[in-house]
């Protein structure tokens, strides 16, 4: 559905009186998001995940590289057709509070884009109304309850469902979920993830899941690919469980090591990796971008920048000169070690 070939994006560096250092947000990212499939991007804040999502939704332009949506290269299209094509990619924002206009009711939020859609499909006003009700039901909201409400009276979880319903008004092929559960109450998070899963299986919507919560990515797209971004570069990617269970790149290993262990339910992994320094985005090394923080860096790491190469399993690739697989994530304890309370 979406194919990215070597897309790059650099911010700043415009010069002027107070010239700023250019910051590379994306350095030649390739990935393929199949129809109905899922691709997850993980990484620290500032790794370029959000920029990637914004580019896919047409809110930013790439500096170089190709972005193909449904097989068509966006750059070759005239502005109008590009906008129409990009409409098939919709964003689910991180913050459901700022993603909804406080002055528009739930009905207006859905019916405005639906009215446009109705004109395309040559449908009438009653189609708009019934479709709004249908979409609310699809995302698990009670239409009778919320149609005439303003967003501020809804809970975070309900708002996020509404944001998803709004994205569905244009019958998109792709949903880009950028930290879509980070600001939702924990007891409601899984509900949102389950909804994304359901949209994948029932509507065939592809999901690009941007997160720092690896387990959430695993829940939405266990059958998909996991991409690890570091300072705009894909340092490792592969099938979700392959990357989680035998990460090759030390950065991936650091990310996975940082996941808290549910003591009592999970057994911590024997090995843990932590970066030896903080992120210094201003420094642009000639060699591996991670070398200055890498606990396993060797002398040659600072000299040449590694590109993606194949790991043992098919489809699992990493960009490390001295890879060593490590098992760093916790494993569940046997279920029988968990006695239950009275029935």
């Amino acid at each position: 559905m979406i194919e990215a070939r070597g897309i790059t994006k650099t911010f700043g560096g415009r010069g002027g009186l107070l010239g700023t250092q250019p910051v590379a947000a994306l350095r030649g990212v390739d990935f393929v998001l199949p129809s109905g499939g899922a691709v997850s991007f993980i990484g620290e804040s500032g790794c370029g995940k959000t920029t990637l999502g914004r580019i896919l939704c047409g809110m930013e332009q790439v500096d170089s590289g190709q972005l193909l949506v449904g097989g068509t290269d966006l750059a070759r299209l005239p502005q109008r057709e590009r906008a129409a094509l990009l409409r098939r990619v919709q964003m689910v924002h991180q913050d459901p509070y700022s993603a909804l206009n406080p002055t528009r009711t739930v009905r207006q939020v859905l019916e405005d884009p639906l009215a446009l859609r109705a004109r395309q499909l040559r449908r009438g006003r009653d189609w708009v109304e019934s479709r709004a009700v249908e979409l609310l039901g699809l995302v698990g909201l009670d239409p009778a309850y919320c149609l005439s409400l303003y967003p501020h009276t809804l809970s975070g979880g309900m708002r996020q469902r509404l944001v998803i319903a709004r994205a569905l008004t244009v019958d998109p092929d792709v949903l880009v979920a950028d930290e879509a559960i980070a600001m939702i109450d924990v007891s409601l998070r899984l509900g949102i993830l389950a909804l994304l899963r359901q949209l994948r299986s029932e509507l065939g919507v592809s999901v690009l899941f941007i997160t720092h919560d690896v387990a959430a990515a695993r829940y939405v797209g266990a059958d998909g690919q996991l991409y690890v971004l570091y300072r705009g570069q894909v340092v490792e990617h592969g099938p979700v469980d392959a990357v989680i269970s035998s990460p090759m790149h030390p950065y991936t290993q650091c990310l996975l090591s940082a996941i808290p262990v549910l003591r009592g339910l999970e057994e911590p992994a024997a090995e843990q990796l932590m970066p030896i320094a903080g992120l210094d985005a201003g420094h642009e090394p000639p060699g591996c971008l991670f070398a200055d923080r890498c606990p396993n860096a060797e002398d040659d790491c600072a000299l040449s920048r590694p590109t993606l190469r194949d790991a043992k399993e098919p489809g699992h690739r990493h960009a490390c000169l001295h890879p060593r697989p490590r098992q760093v994530v916790a494993v569940p304890l046997a279920p029988d070690a968990r006695p239950s309370g009275p029935p």
């Binding site: 924990v186 899984l190 919560d213 549910l262 994530v329």
Partner: peptide, 22 residues
């Protein structure tokens, strides 16, 4: 609450959403 935590390993489908809202 605990059942609704997606896990990093093991059967991912064990996670179950908690209905309702706080």
């Amino acid at each position: 609450l605990i059942a609704a935590i997606p896990r990093i390993s093991g059967d991912i489908d064990r996670a179950q959403p908690l209905p309702g809202r706080p």
